[in-house]
Simulated assay, not measured.
Amino acid sequence: MPADLLLPFGGSDAALPPLYCVHSASGSAYPYLPLAGLLDGRPVVGVEAPGYDGDGLPPADLRELADEYVRTVEEDCPERELCLLGWSMGGSVAFAMAQRLRARGYRVPLLVLVDAQAQDGGPVPPASRVLARFATDLLTEAGLARPAELAAGVLGDLPPEAPTVTAWPLFHRAGLLPEELDAGTLDRRFEVFRRNVTALHANRPEPGYPGRVLVVEASESAPGTLRWTDVAHDVRTVTVPGDHFSIWRGPGLTALGAAVRDALREASAPRPEGAPA
């Protein structure tokens, strides 16, 4: 796993354990960039999926993906102490990484799961729904209002059996995507997204995580069937205003930043002698 998948987002206080932020199903770590400026100078590093902006593709197995990211983080963080954060699918990857890093002797003072549903296994959604979710993500990143409605409107003209590649000209003709997102880039990023969705839905978190976990829920998101309290012992939950995407701007981002900043401060405070790592 190449180290160039790690994106430094700033933070000048080298005395604080770095925070590694794992990508969502899109493969992009850039949604975390606004958060990085709200964390008191803590070093923040985004973890981007292979294939999102370069060669390669992620494995369609979440455990294998977590193993590869752990090896990359180990090379980048010789101090053997770090915090982890993941939004959406990234929460499940970060949870698996935290288990593996602790087993390798790392201190993980805090694991943050942002609007991340714990999956209980189950079938992968049909291809048409995966494509609709991918398109909604693209239009959200483009800053468009009502992205799910826009995506549904465009994809409604696409025959169910049509190859995915035939969707991209429809979005370009509708003026919803910039021309620099050409068919080759969109094909590659859709395959990254499809593999990540497959990995997520086939995964069930391993129970018994003993470390400190902050779960941040969006007030407008529906709860999942499996709770993080079912697989981790030390879980605190906070709710911030907004939906799955809007928590990354405006009042949602302000509340999210405050919750993560306060939890990181608490987790980084000196521990009493003999306290667990």
Rank of each mutant, 00 (worst) to 15 (best):
V238F: 13
V216I: 14
S88A: 03
G105E: 01
G153P: 13
L155G: 06
E74N: 02
G242Q: 11
C21A: 04
G37L: 01
S88M: 01
S221G: 03
F9T: 01
P210N: 10
P17F: 06
L85Q: 01
E68N: 04
L256P: 14
G54T: 01
G56N: 12
R133A: 10
D115M: 02
A66L: 02
G257M: 05
A275M: 10
A232D: 02
A25N: 03
W87L: 06
R188N: 12
D67R: 13
S221M: 01
L144G: 03
T136R: 11
E81Y: 00
A263D: 13
A66M: 03
D115S: 12
L7Y: 08
G257L: 04
F95M: 01
L7K: 07
E75H: 12
L214S: 10
W228A: 08
G91R: 12
E64P: 09
R107W: 05
L176I: 05
A116Y: 00
L186I: 15
T136H: 08
P31M: 06
G184E: 15
G184C: 12
L113M: 14
T225L: 12
P223W: 09
L181P: 02
E180I: 14
V45Y: 06
A199V: 05
R265S: 11
D243T: 03
V192A: 04
P160W: 02
W228R: 10
F171R: 03
Q99G: 15
E266M: 07
D182P: 15
A152M: 10
Y69E: 03
P17L: 07
W228I: 01
R212G: 00
L19E: 15
P17E: 09
L57M: 09
E179N: 11
A49Q: 00
A3H: 14
H172K: 14
P163L: 08
L65S: 08
V240E: 14
T72Y: 11
Q119N: 14
P147C: 13
T237R: 09
V112H: 02
G211I: 02
P169Q: 01
L150C: 04
P78I: 02
V231S: 07
A49W: 12
R236L: 11
L170N: 10
R80M: 10
M97C: 04
L110G: 00
G224V: 14
E74Q: 05
V73N: 04
D137C: 05
R63I: 05
G257Q: 01
S28F: 13
L19P: 12
C83G: 04
A25S: 06
P223F: 06
L200R: 15
D243A: 09
V231Q: 07
P241S: 06
A199D: 02
A145M: 09
L176M: 08
E180Y: 11
E161S: 09
R271Y: 01
A255L: 04
G27V: 08
E81K: 12
G211H: 00
G86S: 07
V213T: 09
P276G: 01
G11A: 15
V235N: 11
A3N: 12
A232I: 08
V22P: 00
R146I: 05
L82E: 06
E149Q: 13
A135N: 07
E191K: 02
R173S: 01
V238T: 15
H244Q: 13
L181S: 09
P31E: 05
F245I: 08
W228V: 02
S219W: 11
G86I: 15
V45H: 00
A202I: 00
A29K: 00
